[in-house]
């Protein structure tokens, strides 16, 4: 028997289909202003916001094991950065988005030095304290409305876009751009040398250390990246809302609870998880929208049940069953020996 010939592939049949669908969806979304009504655009914009927030949180919790319940600190920081930038600095509001990310990255470094001293679950509450401190400090800033908040002045609103339609389009496209950049960025990060390190961390810190990867360094990098991304989304959220207050900017429910539920239900530790989770979240929301608090109770129950009985989430169930990978981050060996039909996959997980 001759030695089997083989090739190494990263893409999978389903990932090629997904790529095709993704490109179609992206074109359709980019053309949104021409075929979706105003209300629809608002919902799609919100969808993109939650998709981005969930993807950022997933990067932290799913890959670095850093379960934060305080990422609302950076959402609010991004929002307040926008207001400071435009109201106090008089600078172009849309331009605040990348700088909000940059500022958050700089801020995340010393904060990580503090909260990283808390291990595991205590880290989670530590991040929450940081978010509370942000909220209380924001309420002290009287030039930005103090505890009751502030609206963007009319000249700043005009600077986003001359007409209401132009404004909506500019914010919408910026949000779409950030969401796509975040997804592609995560994909590239996970395929890089760092990605290998992150997967090793997910599989066990000891294993990661023995491969010579600096676990602490990789975790810090992820914390900084996720905080910067979250702050950019925060700036966009309040660019669309035109109004900010400490309680809205640093809301645990809005910016963390929903995000955690989305990721857990969709599938934590997978790029596909937040996508599936966000789709499901919006479907559930339109079905239960009128129920108020009951909606959160239902969502919480679903998340708890998923965590107890399907800890890899819905996408995990699908992926295990069919072996699907829409964002292939692992390579597989495909035997091309004529007699053999099998193509065993050597996954790096």
């Amino acid at each position: 028997m001759s030695a089997p010939s083989f090739r190494i592939e990263r893409s999978t049949p389903e990932s090629k289909v997904a790529l095709g669908l993704g490109i179609v969806a992206l074109i359709a979304l980019a053309a949104g202003p021409w075929w979706i009504d105003r209300n629809g655009m608002r919902i799609v914009g919100e969808f993109l916001v939650y998709l981005s927030l969930a993807s950022m949180w997933n990067l932290l919790a799913g890959y670095a094991g850093l379960v934060s319940v305080g990422q609302q600190a950076y959402v609010g920081f991004g929002g307040y950065f926008l207001f400071a930038w435009a109201v106090l600095g008089g600078l172009p509001p849309l331009l605040s988005v990348p700088f909000a990310g940059l500022a958050a990255a700089v801020l995340a470094l010393p904060i990580s030095a503090l909260v990283f001293r808390l291990k595991g679950a205590y880290f989670a509450i530590g991040t929450w304290v940081v978010a509370e401190v942000f909220l209380l400090l924001a309420a002290q800033v009287t030039v930005l409305g103090g505890g009751s908040g502030i609206s963007l002045p009319i000249d700043v609103v005009r600077a986003i876009g001359a007409s209401r339609d132009a404004r909506d389009m500019n914010v919408y496209w910026s949000t779409l751009g950030i969401a796509v950049a975040i997804l592609i960025g995560i994909y590239i990060l996970l395929r890089s040398r760092w990605g290998l390190a992150l997967q090793a961390i997910r599989d066990g810190e000891l294993a990661a250390e023995t491969t010579g990867v600096s676990v602490a360094g990789a975790k810090r990098l992820l914390y900084v990246v996720a905080s910067a991304g979250t702050a950019m989304i925060g700036a966009l959220i309040f660019l669309a809302k035109l109004r900010i207050s400490p309680n809205a900017a640093f809301s645990v429910n809005d910016w963390t609870a929903f995000v955690i539920f989305i990721t857990v239900i969709g599938g934590i530790g997978r790029i596909e998880g937040p996508i599936i989770g966000t789709l499901l979240y919006f479907a559930l929301r339109s079905a239960l929208a009128d129920l108020g608090a009951i909606y959160l109770i239902v969502l919480g129950c679903v998340a708890v049940v998923v965590m107890l009985f399907a800890p890899k989430g819905l996408w995990g169930l699908v992926a295990d069953r069919f072996g699907w990978q829409l964002f292939p981050t692992t390579c597989r060996l495909v035997l091309t020996q004529p007699s053999s039909q099998t193509s065993p996959s050597l996954k790096g997980e």
Binding site: V67, V69, A257, I260, V264, I297, G300, V304
Partner: peptide
């Protein structure tokens, strides 16, 4: 050994209790 499940389940419980009381 995994920290995630207890943390996320108790977080879910927190949201359930809070909104249950609200209701």
């Amino acid at each position: 050994p995994d920290l995630l499940p207890p943390l996320l389940v108790s977080f879910g419980l927190s949201v359930i209790i809070q909104n249950g009381l609200l209701q």
